[in-house]
Design a protein around this nucleic acid. Structure first.
Length: 223
DNA sequence: TAGGCCATCTGGTCCT
DNA sequence: AGGACCAGATGGCCTA
C-alpha cells in the first residue's frame, strides 16, 4: 500500500492526474471516484469474484477472416486504408501480392487481438473497479498500474517474511517490543501497532486474522 | 475543437 | 520463405 502510494515517477504522476488518485490509492478513502473515472474496489474485494477470462492467445478468433476486414466492428473502427478500397494501395498490386498483403494484415490483426486479450487479463487481476459503468483502463495505465502492483506485492511478501521470522524468534518477548527487535523500523509501519498489548505469539497471530493459516501454523503446534 | 486512445494498415527487420 | 515483431501513419470515437 505504502509502496503504491509512494511511487511517484513522472508517468505515474501523469496517470494519477488523468485518471484520478483513486486508481492508485486503494483503501485511502478516495474510493468513490467520479463517474467515468476509476473508483476502487476495496482491497479485500478486488481479488474476490474476479472474472478473469481464460486467456487463450492461441485460441480461435471468431472475428478474423483471412481476407481484409473481419467484421462489422472492424469496419467501423478501421481506417480508410481499406484493403477493399478501389483507390487503395493494394489496387495497383497483382492478385498474388494483394492476397499476401491481406494475409499479413489478418495475421497482424490477430496478433494485436492476442495482445489486447492479454491486457484484458491483466486488467482483471489488478486493483481497480471492474464495472460496465467504469471506463476501462488504458493500455499504458494498465501496464503502469500492474508494475506498481507487482512491486507492492513483492514488498508485502517481504514484510510478511520478516514478520514470520520475528514471530518465530520473539515468542517470549514481553511488551513493549524493543525497538531493536522490531522487524519494522517505524511504529507506524509495524503491522500490529494497533494492538500493542498483544504480546504473545498467539495473540499476535489472532490479531492478524486475514493471514493464510499456514503462515501461523507454529501457533497451533506450540502451546 | 483539441487531445487522448484506439484499431488497422503498411513496410521494414529479425528469427526460425 | 514465412511468420513474428515493431514503429509510423492514418482516421474514428470520445471527452474535457
Amino acid at each position: 500500500l505504502n509502496l503504491l502510494k509512494s511511487i511517484s515517477n513522472d508517468a505515474l504522476l501523469d496517470l494519477t492526474q488523468r485518471y484520478g488518485q483513486s486508481a492508485f490509492g486503494f483503501g485511502a478513502g478516495h474510493g468513490a471516484g467520479s463517474p467515468g473515472r476509476f473508483p476502487l474496489t476495496p482491497a479485500a474485494d478486488f481479488l474476490s469474484g474476479q472474472t478473469a477470462k481464460s486467456n487463450e492467445s492461441g485460441g480461435e478468433h471468431t472475428s478474423d477472416d483471412e481476407d481484409g476486414f473481419d467484421s462489422l466492428e472492424s469496419r467501423k473502427r478501421g481506417s480508410t486504408f481499406g484493403d477493399d478500397k478501389p483507390g487503395g494501395p493494394l489496387a495497383k498490386k497483382s492478385k498474388e501480392q494483394r492476397s499476401l498483403r491481406l494475409s499479413i494484415n489478418a495475421r497482424e490483426r490477430r496478433r494485436m487481438h492476442d495482445l489486447n486479450d492479454a491486457l484484458d487479463g491483466l486488467r482483471a487481476v489488478i486493483p481497480y473497479a471492474h464495472s460496465p459503468s467504469v471506463r476501462k483502463l488504458s493500455k499504458i495505465a494498465t501496464l503502469l498500474l500492474a508494475k506498481n502492483y507487482i512491486l507492492m506485492q513483492a514488498q508485502a511478501l517481504e514484510e510478511m517474511r520478516r514478520l514470520v521470522a520475528y514471530l518465530n524468534q520473539g515468542q517470549t518477548i514481553t511488551s513493549p517490543i524493543p525497538t531493536a527487535l522490531a522487524p519494522f523500523g517505524q511504529a507506524a509501519v509495524y503491522p500490529f501497532s494497533g494492538s500493542a498489548l498483544a504480546t504473545t505469539c498467539a495473540e499476535k497471530c489472532s490479531t492478524y486474522s486475514g493471514a493464510p493459516s499456514t503462515l501461523f501454523k507454529h501457533c497451533n503446534d506450540k502451546p
